[in-house]
């Protein structure tokens, strides 16, 4: 039997008295590309952060590839593109890629990252620091960073935000080719999911 890529069972997440996730269940099989939509503040980002191990659920459990998210071997298989690009502003795009590849222990991550930067219309030999980039360029660099380790699962939070149409197309082409992905976005045009879920009242429901 195939182990689910992500198995979220009965997860609650509260911020003080506010319950953001409520007995939430989600099973994502390997090969699924799931898009999650919902109004602002509905808990989409919180769910991604819980899956990524950045937030502990108040109740319930999360398993990724059958293991605990705290396990380094599980984390190594995940590529994260958070809403904030998570780039070091004083380093160049390629220096960022090189650093994150090394942190993930990916021997060919730097070479793959170089290729990804090119595909996203960025120059890997550009020595300018990322702080001098436009928001769209930073967003593209962040996607290259998330994918350079060739992850089995990609978690992306609003990857098409702040992008012009060509940038969104380039990122969509990459995300549509990943093995398994959970993408939070309002953009229904670019990403082609195998499943579309919507966040309602702290739970996930199949979207129309």
């Amino acid at each position: 039997m195939d182990v689910a890529a992500v198995e979220v069972a009965g997860v609650d997440r509260r911020y003080g008295a506010t319950r953001v996730l409520s007995s939430l269940d989600l099973s994502v099989a390997s090969g699924d590309r799931v898009v999650i939509t919902g109004p602002n503040g509905s808990g989409k980002t919180t769910l991604l952060r819980v899956i990524a191990g950045l937030l502990r659920p108040t109740r319930g459990s999360v398993r990724v590839f059958g293991g605990e998210i705290s396990d380094a071997s599980v984390r190594r298989r995940i590529g994260i593109a958070p809403h904030m690009p998570a780039l070091y502003p004083r380093l160049s795009a390629f220096e960022n890629i090189r650093f994150w590849s090394a942190v993930y222990g990916s021997p060919d991550g730097a070479a793959r990252g170089r290729e990804l930067l090119r595909r996203l219309d960025l120059d890997p030999d550009d020595t300018r620091p990322v702080s001098s980039y436009s928001q769209g360029m930073r967003q593209r660099t962040a996607i290259a960073r998330a994918l350079c380790t060739d992850p089995d699962l990609v978690l992306a939070d609003e990857p098409f935000a702040a992008l012009d149409p060509s940038g969104a197309d380039a990122i969509a082409a990459l995300l549509n080719g990943v093995r398994t992905a959970i993408v939070v976005t309002h953009d229904r045009e670019h990403f082609h999911p195998t499943r579309h879920l919507a966040m309602r009242g702290g739970k996930l429901v199949a979207a129309a």
């Binding site: 984390r75 190594r76 994260i80 690009p85 998570a86 993930y104 222990g105």
Partner: peptide, 14 residues
């Protein structure tokens, strides 16, 4: 501020 701490926390880094 740059979100890199979350990146490090989510990475396999000890």
């Amino acid at each position: 501020k740059d979100g890199t701490l979350d990146g490090l926390r989510a990475s396999p880094l000890d």
